[in-house]
Structures are given as structure tokens and as C-alpha cells.
Design a protein around this nucleic acid. Structure first.
Lengths: 349, 349
DNA sequence: TTTTGTTTTGCAATCGATTGCCCTATTTTT
DNA sequence: AAAAATAGGGCAATCGATTGCAAAACAAAA
């Protein structure tokens, strides 16, 4: 197969003895061309295997109907659901989606964002990496007239559209649930505190304890226990305390809750009788463990749709200086066996 | 904030009293500009908040360092892992990644592919939708000088690069394992037979039975049982047979195996004693169920990397007429509790 | 038939970066 | 010192589609 050039509108114009402009108009279904001509152009274009060149078109029109998404990890259930939700909306609007992953690294996040800015995408949707760093790259996005929507993990100081979970409230409700089930020494597994979502979850935890007059104990709060392994380590430590906790709230993730479950099970501890466990995210596996794990659902797919709709409804084609909206979604506590020691007819299994 | 225009190389040229071409060369680090000039341009560009315009550049250069990926579902573990693997490689090469999902619909797949062709991407990586349909759209890709790599679910007749799992072999080994564990009436849950991967898995199943002189029984093969619900239905039916199976190989997915597990457990059937269960894909949850489910790992992340490397090593910049390679990856049977009724020291738990 | 109005089509500039070719200094070689 | 080579930089065309404006063709109105 020879390296033949692609058919352009000029080729079509030449063949039909027309001007390229007319071909362009015919193809874009403008009402400034004769119906017969239009039909002829369309037919010829098909015959000549013509394909519209989006690069040229976007360049000329000065806009690129593409949305860039930057997430820490593409293959994390929460994020891949978010992406799926976004895609569903953008597809209908004829937008493309460019996906990048930061791998939780700040430098890489900066790279990704810059690449997207170079592409002149219309909007960048981002959930920031765990690794700390300045956020000039995000300010740059705005300076370049590109829309920016932050979700889940956001830089609060930056005045942009945001779609977040009400982490504090969800956390508060989860801990309240634990208290209602009679747990009193509730430990907290924390995530990296530079991320606001983890600070908020801690706030909710503290608020719930205070509300119920339960003392806050430093020894029951473990920093940086956000993977399965770290969760397991922290659990081993907690359970070794002179006065161990009777419940563990793995506010970081279900994976860390899984670590808790494994260590506790291995130690022969009865769950939920002697130890309550609550995770965060409603990963699919949480309903399959034994016992199933109480967790918090973040409505990730619908959150993705919300994010995309935010762009199309509030930003696309509109003025740049509108007041950024902040959409807060209230996650839901999914009660399962790992925290149910009081019979409850309303509970989910 | 006003709708100010973006800085271009002409703006920089004007300011520095240079020609645009020199600015371009300076920015692309050409050795045809003086080092001092180069430094000056770089400095000024930064000051003026200049950002390279990829659309213009790609148009002129006639290539777009972007790879398009089309998968049935972004948020399926296997696919999101594939994407993560691909991304890891493309990121290093400075390529962008455009992601689309077909949602298993043929029409939508065609749309996605066309959008990618319009974007003049360098390569399209695709795993086709379950819904049947002609594959002219894929032929088109080739006609437009765009590289095409099919993976996992491929159109065999189409002569392209392919990265596939050796489904037949994996299936054969899984069934052989079941036979070795003493199961004799092994049922098969099949996926849509228009997809070659499911045909191959059936072949492997049949081959293993034949090899061990076990009769192939029509009543033990259930078509189209590839979701959790369909798997559950099929299981209910199978277990209601006068002569029910003593093992079920859910060749379609772990989800369908999960359906099997639930129905069997509810009926009080002992697993693995009275019924062996084997899934396919090694979804994370398979090691968490009770009992844990024997399944087949497809090395999805590394498969993603393999796919991307195939492009960079065998296709990028090279002639278009090289003989397409077919890379076959041998999946691995992960033996877990759901099929272990004979003590085996080597087994994974 | 002339004038006015409406379609339809063509011309040429434009989007922003790249690159082949040419020109002028400057350096190196003989 | 003259000739040759090299470095540094500018001009202008180019990628392919779009679009404002002008021209031509045709239809309708006077």
C-alpha cells in the first residue's frame, strides 16, 4: 500500500469543478449551497473516501471540542467509573475525551495538564495527585482560557468549579452509625492530610465523637493508612494496644478496610461482635467479603455525569467570568454485616 | 477576564524583532539558531505565557502523536487495566491517549472509530463490541493509513496486528484442572458466540473433555450466560437437572461465576465438595469470596504495555506494509478454594 | 424590459507552526 | 588575502478547512 495522500476538500473540488469553499459548505450542511450540489458533493466525498480533518478544522475555528481528564489512577474503580460517567455525556455532545493519569505524582500531573493545554482542549477535569506540590499549572489552565473543573480531591484555594463529595457529612454519618451500634472506642485510619478529602473525613469523625460525648483519643488515630498493607499494619498496632479499639473506621478506602478485616480475622477476632469495620468507596468487593463490609457509596458514575453536565450547562460557550459553582454530592452509608451487631430491620445486607 | 488572544510565535517574533521561523526554531531547539537567541526566545516565551499550539503543529507536520483506544466499557477492570498499561507507555513517548467506550454497541463503536479517524490519530487500539456488525469501519482505518491494533476480542478475518490471550489453552488448562480434581460432569457457561474469544474458550473446554474421554453433553452447555444475573439463571437451571453437573466453568467472566456461587450457596450446596466453580479474568473480588474463586488471570496491565510497545517498536514511523504480528499471551489458571477438593501443596489459596 | 431581491458560487485571507530555500555575516581553509 | 565553508536568520509556501465578502446567476417584482 503506497503512502497515498488523504483526500481533501480540494481534491473533491477539483473533481467536481467547484470551489473548495462550496465543498466545505456542502459538507457542513450549510444552507448556502444548492441541494443538488450538496448531494453531489456528499456522494463524491463518500466515493473518494474523504474523511474530515479535525485538526485543520479545529485550528481554523479556534476551538477543540475535547475534554481532558486527569486522574491519579485510571484503573481505580472510583475513577474509572467517573470517566465512564463523563464519557457517556461527552459522547452525546460529540466531544472527545483525552485521559491521563498522574500516578499520584505531582510532576506527572503537571506534564499531563500542560499537554492538555497544548492541545487547546475546551475543558480540563482533574482530581489532584496525592503528592503535594504547587498548583501553578492549574492557574495556567485558567490563564489560557481553558475551563477547569476539579472533582473529589480539589485545591480549595483555587476558585474553580468543583464537584465534591460531602466527605465530612458522610464520615459523620458513618461514625454515628458505629456509635448507634454500640461501639465506643472507634479508631480512625487517616489518609494523607494534605488532601482535603481526608481532612474532611477526619473532621466528620471528630464531630460525631464530640456530638456523642465520646473522648477523642490520639492513640486511636493512625496517619497514612490508606492502602491495604498500611491498613493491615495500623490494625496490628491498634489491636496490640493495652486498650484496643472496638471499631475501626478506615476512612481512606475499602482496601485499607480489607487490610483491617484480614488482620482481625487472622487474630480470631469476631466481626462485628468484637470489632466493627467500616470502609469508604463501596468497592464491588465489599459486599463479597465475609462478613460483608459497611462502607460509603460515592455514586461515582452519576458523579461523572454531573461533572460533564456542569461543563455543558454552565460553561460551554458562556462567559468566562461567571461565578464558579460548587456541587456537593452527599454520599450514602451502606450498612453491611461488618458493623451490624444490633438487629436492624432496615439494614442492607 | 477578557477574551484575550493566546500568544503565538508571531507575537514573540514581533516583540523580539525576529522572524517567526526563528522563534519556531528556537522553541524546537533547532541548531540553526544562535544559543543566545534561543535563550532569549525561551525567556520571552515564558514571560508572555506562551503555549505551543499542538493543533497547528500537528496539521503542518501531518501527524498527530495520539493513540485512540476503543473498549466496550472503560470501567471494567480488565479494560481499565489495559488502558492503564497503555497509558504508562504512551506517556513516556509523549503521546496522548483518547479513550472511547462502545458500550458493547456496534453503532457506537463505528462512531468512535470515525471520530478517531477524523482526529488523524496515529494508531487505533480496539477491542470490539459484543454486538455483531460489519467491520468496514476498521477497514477504513487501514485505508486511511492509520495503524490498527486489535486486542482481546478481535475480528480474525481482518489482517492487522493483534494481541490476544490464548483463550483456548487457558480454558483447556482450567478444565483439565477441574478434571484432575475429580470433577466429571463439568458444565460450561458460554459467552456470545459471535465473539471469537468465547468460541475459543469453548474449544478449550471441548478439547479438555475429549482428551480425558469425558462425554460432551449438550445439556451442560449454556449459551449466553455472561453476566452475574444470566450466570445465576443458568446455574438454577443446571442444578435443577435430573443429573446436575458437579462443576461449572463460567468461561465468560468472574461475574457470572459469582452468580453461580450465590445460587449454589443459597441452595446449601457445598463448594468445592459438591460443586466446583471456575471463573475467568481474575477480578479482584475472586480472592475475597467464600470460598475464593478459581479463575484465570490475563495479565491485563502488562498486556496493555505489550500493545503499546507493539506500536512503538513495530509500527511507528515504519513502512505500512510490514506483515502484521500476532502476539499471544498465555493466561494463567489461578487455583483457589472453589475447585480444590484434593489437597495440593502447590496450590495458591 | 428594467430593477430589485435572492440563491448560489468563487476568491482569498485566515488559524499557528513548520520548513525548504535563499541571503548575509562570520569563520575557516588554502 | 582570497576562496570556501559555515552559522544564523529571513521569506514565503504549506498543512486543510472555514468564512467574510464579492460576484454571478437566476427569479421575482415593477
Amino acid at each position: 500500500m503506497q503512502r497515498q495522500k488523504r483526500t481533501t476538500i480540494y481534491d473533491i473540488a477539483l473533481k467536481l469543478n467547484l470551489a473548495a469553499s462550496s465543498v466545505s459548505r456542502a459538507l457542513s450542511n450549510s444552507n448556502k449551497v444548492n441541494a443538488a450540489t450538496k448531494a453531489l458533493v456528499l456522494k463524491t466525498a463518500a466515493e473518494m473516501n474523504y474523511q474530515h480533518n479535525a485538526m485543520a478544522s479545529n485550528l481554523r475555528k479556534g476551538n477543540n471540542p475535547t475534554i481532558g481528564v486527569v486522574v491519579p489512577r485510571i484503573n481505580q474503580f472510583f475513577f474509572s467509573n467517573i470517566i465512564a460517567g463523563i464519557e457517556e455525556v461527552t459522547y452525546k455532545k460529540g466531544y472527545n475525551l483525552i485521559i491521563c493519569q498522574s500516578n499520584e505524582l505531582h510532576a506527572r500531573e503537571v506534564d499531563c495538564v500542560n499537554a492538555l493545554v497544548n492541545q487547546h482542549v475546551s475543558c480540563i477535569i482533574i482530581s489532584i495527585a496525592a503528592e503535594n506540590g504547587p498548583y501553578e499549572h492549574l492557574q495556567q489552565v485558567l490563564d489560557h482560557q481553558i475551563r477547569l473543573i476539579q472533582f473529589d480531591r480539589v485545591v480549595e484555594e483555587l476558585d474553580t468549579f468543583k464537584v465534591i463529595n460531602n466527605n465530612e457529612k458522610a464520615s459523620y454519618e458513618a461514625v454515628t452509625h458505629l456509635i448507634e451500634q454500640g461501639y465506643r472506642r472507634i479508631a480512625l485510619l487517616e489518609g494523607p492530610q494534605q488532601l482535603d478529602i481526608f481532612r474532611q473525613r477526619k473532621e466528620g469523625y471528630l464531630a460525631a465523637l464530640r456530638k456523642h460525648n465520646i473522648p477523642v483519643l490520639e492513640e486511636l488515630m493512625c496517619e497514612n493508612a490508606w492502602t491495604k498493607e498500611l491498613g493491615a499494619e495500623a490494625t496490628a498496632q491498634l489491636l496490640g494496644l493495652e486498650n484496643p479499639p472496638d471499631a475501626i473506621f478506615a476512612s481512606t478506602s475499602d482496601f485499607s478496610a480489607l487490610g483491617v478485616l484480614e488482620v482481625a480475622t487472622n487474630k480470631g477476632i469476631q466481626i462485628p461482635k468484637d470489632l466493627g469495620i467500616c470502609g469508604y468507596s463501596n468497592e464491588p468487593f465489599t459486599e463479597l467479603t465475609s462478613p460483608s463490609i459497611t462502607t460509603i457509596d460515592q455514586y461515582s458514575i452519576s458523579m461523572g455525569k454531573t461533572i460533564a453536565n456542569l461543563y455543558f450547562q454552565e460553561m460551554e460557550g458562556l462567559e468566562f467570568n461567571v461565578e464558579p459553582k460548587i456541587v456537593s454530592i452527599k454520599p450514602k452509608v451502606i450498612v453491611r454485616k461488618s458493623t451490624q451487631r444490633i438487629a436492624d430491620v432496615n439494614a442492607t445486607t
